[in-house]
Structures are given as C-alpha cells and as structure tokens.
Design a protein around this nucleic acid. Structure first.
Lengths: 217, 217
DNA sequence: TACGCTCCGATACGGTACGTTCCGTTATCT
DNA sequence: AGATAACGGAACGTACCGTATCGGAGCGTA
C-alpha cells in the first residue's frame, strides 16, 4: 500500500513543465502584468482548470517559475575578503536580473495582505541570496578581517539593500565597478577621521542616538 | 480675456478634497488593494466620472494623495555630521512610514511598463528624500569630515537603500538605534585593516574589479 | 473484468472592477 | 441669452478572476 500514490489518474508531469515554460515566456516578453492564466494555459496547450489544479493563482505560478530560475547560490571562499564580497554581491545582483525587478515588485505588492505568501516569497527569493552574503561575512570575520564588534545582520542588510534598491528604483542595476566601490566604501569607511566625529557629536547635547559601538581603535 | 478660465461650469475644488480624503482613509484601512474607484467615489459622495475627470486611475489617485502627505523635507544642518546624517535618515524613514510600504510596492509594480509614471513616482516619493541625504553629505564633505574621493551618488544609494529595504522587506523598518549603527558603520568602515585587505586582493590574480579608489591614507 | 478515483479538455458561469458613455441638470463664463 | 463644461446617476462593454459541470481517459484496487 503506497500511501504516496493517490488513487485515480496521476497528474501529467509534462503539463507542469509546459505551463511553467509558458509562464517563463510571458514573464520575459510582457512581464507580470501580462501573466493571464487563460493565456498561459492556451500557450501551454492546456486547459485552465489544469493550471488551477496545480497552482493557486498568478502569484503562486510566477513564484514557481522564479524558483526554477534561481539555483542554489554557492558563496565563494577564496580567503580574499574583497574578492569574496565582490563575487557574492555580483551573484546576488545577477540572480535578480534573472528574476526581473518588475516581477519582484508585483509579487511583493501582491504579498502585502498575505503573510504566508510573503514568507514564502522572501524565503525563496531573498533569504538564500542574503545567506550567501552572510556566510561570506562570517568567514571574513572569523579570519579577523572584519571588526569583531560588527553588526552582522545590519551589514548584510546594507549590502543586500543596495542590490535591491538599484534593481527596483534603477535607473540601472549595480554594475561590477559600483560593487567594487561599494565594498571598498563599507570596508574602509567614508569618514576622514571617524573618532573626531564621535567626539564632536558628544559635544552636542542633541537627542540623537549615540552609536553604541564607537570605533575601538 | 482670461485664457486660464475655461468656459463652462468650473470644477468643484471641494470634490478634489473629498476624494483625496476618501483615498487617504481607504489606504490607511485596507491598503492599496482596497482602493476601488467606485468605493472611493461613494465614500466621497461623488460620482465616478467626477473622479476620472481628475485622475487617470488608481495609480494617479494614490500618488496624488501620497504627495499630500510628504511635505518638503528640510535637511538638518547642525555642523555635526553624525547628528545630521542620523536625522536625515530618520526623517527619510518616517516619510515612508507615512506612505506605507504596501502602497509603495504596488505603485512601483504598476509603474513597470509606464516610464512616465515611473519618473513621476520616483520624482515625487524618492528623489526629494534622497536629495535631503545628499545635501547633508555634501555639507559634511565640504567641512572636510568625509573623504574627498567619496563617491557621493553611491553613498546616497547605500544609505537610502537601507531605508527602503527595511520598509519593503521588513520585518520591521529601521529604528533609531539601527540608523545610528548604520551611520557609524559606513563612516568608520567595518574592516580591521582595509589597506591590508587591498594588498591581499592584489595578490590574487582574480578577475574581480579592483576598487578604483583604494584608501589614500 | 469491473469499479472507483482523479486527471484531462472544453465550456459555461457568476463575480469584481475596470474605464467609458449617455443622460438630464446645474453652474459659470462671454 | 447662449455656449460650455461639470455634476449625479445609471448603464454599458471589456477583461480577468476563480469555480463548476461535463463526458472521456488513464490508472489503481477488488
């Protein structure tokens, strides 16, 4: 008694592929807006109920296709922190070029009032890429290349957000040269004399929050 | 001969206000998804054509309301770079809390295949906030607080993107303490010895792009 | 072999929201 | 006075949603 095998006629796996291929084609030509179930079904040579039998709607359908496009990201590990970070971010950016900023925005919008789908979306598209960056940072810190008081989560956010921002708000995604400059900037800092700035800020009785990890050096 | 005054019955300015008030109410309760023209018209005590006579559709309607909410941002200027940057980013984040991440995502998605609307959207919601941050950075650099070889545009991107990212991808928007840590990190850098990292990366014959503004110090 | 289950394509359906058009009426400008 | 355009109300055609129904086909179990 195979509990896995449901009774009755099994689903045709070829239909799954044909539909996702059609979705891919539509996304690349007309974008998410053009993703109309009936149209997808027609292109795939498949009936509409056959699609709904497999996916709940446009959102699920699009996410399923995007999941196909994002293979697991292999974070580099060359013991060269600059190289690894650069490579991580480059892969990150390339991944979202494949996904398409438009589609990402639509899925994000559609997930607004559906926490479950939002978790699935972020868990599929965002988290793996972030994780790759995070692992790179962890290794670099373990080597002693990064400050020990580093706020890891916030640094991952800072690097990841730059990739997303440029994809979503353009005009262009980050190119390699910009990634290099960004990595350099966040590693070396942009202040001429950070400690002096901290001292000066303390003289202001301002109500701003004093950074809780002032430069140790 | 007033060329400005069109012949015929003039538009009732009270309708403009009533409609935008209704839009505001709907956006705050049900979000962009709940923004249905017929519903807005009913709430405003107005006919549907009266709405379409003024705005092209949901997108324009929502953007018009959001424009009402974002007054001009006054970048602080206290000659304290840490304080000013902190304040700039805090105002930035607050502005988008008023707009609502959901609505922003929807508008961004809807603007995908309409470059004109996209320009209007970014010009209204994004550019002014960025500009405030940019002015703060420019003043700090002029004071000599920031490195002279600073890539201004990229730095603005880095700081702005963090605000957007946390608003859009959450789970929570940036809080004040995180803003402080982020400012500290980007000003002071996260590397223990950046110059050493650059030297090491040069030993790799890797094909990665060598940062074109290595640390001058 | 017979039966039951589930998938298959085809088609029809009700529902929602869009954006437009027509109407008779009302307000303002020339 | 007359032209013009906004007003509310209502209906319209379109698009797409997601679901239901149908006869038929494929596969499991009795």
């Amino acid at each position: 008694m195979q509990s896995r095998a449901r009774a009755g006629r099994p689903r045709d796996a070829a239909i799954d592929r044909a539909v996702l291929d059609a979705v891919s084609q539509v996304l690349d030509t007309g974008g998410y807006q053009a993703l109309v179930i009936e149209d997808v079904a027609r292109r795939a040579g498949v009936s509409k109920p056959a699609v709904y039998r497999r996916w709940a709607g446009r959102r699920d359908l699009a996410l399923a296709e995007l999941r196909r496009r994002l293979e697991a990201v292999q974070p580099p590990d060359t013991r060269c922190t600059l190289c690894d970070l650069h490579e991580s971010l480059s892969l990150f950016s390339q991944a979202f070029t494949r996904v398409g900023a438009t589609t990402l925005a639509h899925l994000l919008a559609d997930s607004a009032h559906d926490p479950d789908f939002r978790d699935e979306l972020i868990g599929t598209l965002v988290s793996p890429q972030r994780e790759a960056v995070s692992r790179t940072l962890v290794k670099a810190r373990a080597r002693g290349d990064l400050r020990s008081d580093l706020d890891l989560a916030l640094t991952v956010d800072a690097l990841s957000s730059l990739v997303f921002y440029r994809q979503l708000f353009g005009p262009d995604p980050l190119d390699d040269a910009e990634i290099g400059r960004a990595v350099a900037a966040i590693l070396s800092g942009i202040a001429t004399d950070y400690d002096a700035l901290v001292r000066e800020s303390l003289e202001h009785e301002g109500d701003h929050v004093v950074p809780d990890h002032a430069h140790p050096g």
